[in-house]
Design a protein around this nucleic acid. Structure first.
Lengths: 211, 211
DNA sequence: CACAAAGTTAAACAAATGTTTGATTTAAAC
DNA sequence: GTTTAAATCAAACATTTGTTTAACTTTGTG
């Protein structure tokens, strides 16, 4: 299933990613992409077939990245369920922060298109991630660490929604907190740390506090 | 500042709203809008000048709606700060749920365009809402109801991000919770209630729980 | 070298796009 | 009823769009 792409294809995909994140899929022309990638216009059709297929290629290229890949941690008997959950949170934040362009595209795509290839991919990714978290939570409940009656989809929405909203509106966050003096790198670090603290606190409240 | 629109203009604006929410701004042609609104193509330029200006008109038309308009509640001495905060939460959820199309458009627009008319409007709206909530929180802190060191922008991101993510992916939420049998109306009610409980719980945790 | 496949190109293509035109109809005011 | 402005319309406009063509260069292989 995993397709491999050559250098030129990756150049095109990553140029497209930047532009899609910046101006949206429909707001970006294949000529824009060709120019940014320094390739001839026809190369995009030649390699990917169409603009739509290029988006699909981008999702295949990045898709693996946004999956929570912590299966090996799951069985670890030495970690508490809460520690595991905190690891999942940091893992997710890490991915969103490292792939901000793709996160924006995903955020936009999932609001649109409930059919089609990308919707299907997003849906499966969501489902997969949710199953992992469900297992984690049920383990925690069995051990008495977590309380009962946890609405997992809502919890996921808070994780995904908060992280993506912050990433999407970080210029605003930066201004409101007077962090313009920070270097880009330092600001990213700051934001990541704050986001991590915030979400862990929220999750602790959902998972352990009684009414 | 507040422009009034005649029936035909509103017809166009609301048709555009539906289509923009469904297919995005760039994914919608003015011909699509004209057809949906049952008006001649040229009427859109005639009334609004351009497609971009039509989007601006939509924001002017709906913009007022998404502002949190609870200034009169603020001074109410009989309500606790937590009660006020819960009212703000329900107020926001109510607006997002009632204006799902516009919420989707805003969500998409704020990821894109950090310049331009709509970005400016969103920015001002954000700032205004944040000031209101800041006041509320500082009142609560002064009264000893809320703890210190609350990251308000992060809190706002959780409110906005969670609510909008749920609205944007409600088909998924519905499927995952086996709520397909519910009527649309009942499902909206269900989702609203759950969302309200969830966010109130989160906010209570952020605002009152000590480390 | 010869040959075939893959890569690359400028040009052309048809369709769709946002916008404008100019003629015609409707409505209101005098 | 005449005049004037607003509203409506089909058609045309110039760009931009995604995609294809057909000629070419490059690359690798026997």
């Amino acid at each position: 299933m995993t397709t491999t792409y050559n250098d030129k294809q990756i150049q095109i995909i990553e140029s497209a990613e930047t532009l899609f994140a910046e101006k949206g899929f429909n707001g970006t022309s294949v000529r824009d992409i060709a120019e940014k990638a320094n390739v001839n216009l026809a190369m995009i059709s030649y390699y990917f077939g169409s603009k739509d297929k290029l988006l699909e290629a981008l999702f295949s290229y990045r898709g693996e990245y946004l999956k929570i890949t912590l299966e090996n941690m799951m069985g670890d008997g030495t970690m508490s369920s809460m520690d595991k959950m905190n690891t999942v949170i940091d893992h997710y934040i890490d991915k969103v922060m490292k792939q901000q362009c793709f996160s924006r595209i995903m955020m936009r795509e999932q609001v649109l298109n409930h059919t089609g290839f990308t919707a299907k991919l997003i849906f499966e990714m969501k489902k997969r991630n949710q199953e992992l978290i469900s297992r984690l939570i049920h383990d925690g409940q069995r051990k008495g660490e977590f309380r009962k009656n946890i609405d997992i989809p809502l919890m996921m929405a808070t994780l995904i929604g908060t992280a993506n909203t912050i990433v999407a509106t970080q210029h605003y966050y930066r201004e409101i907190n007077n962090l313009q003096t920070l270097s880009d790198e330092d600001f990213q670090k700051h934001m990541k740390k704050k986001l991590s603290q915030h979400l862990k606190k929220l999750f602790k409240a959902i998972l352990t506090h009684e009414e």
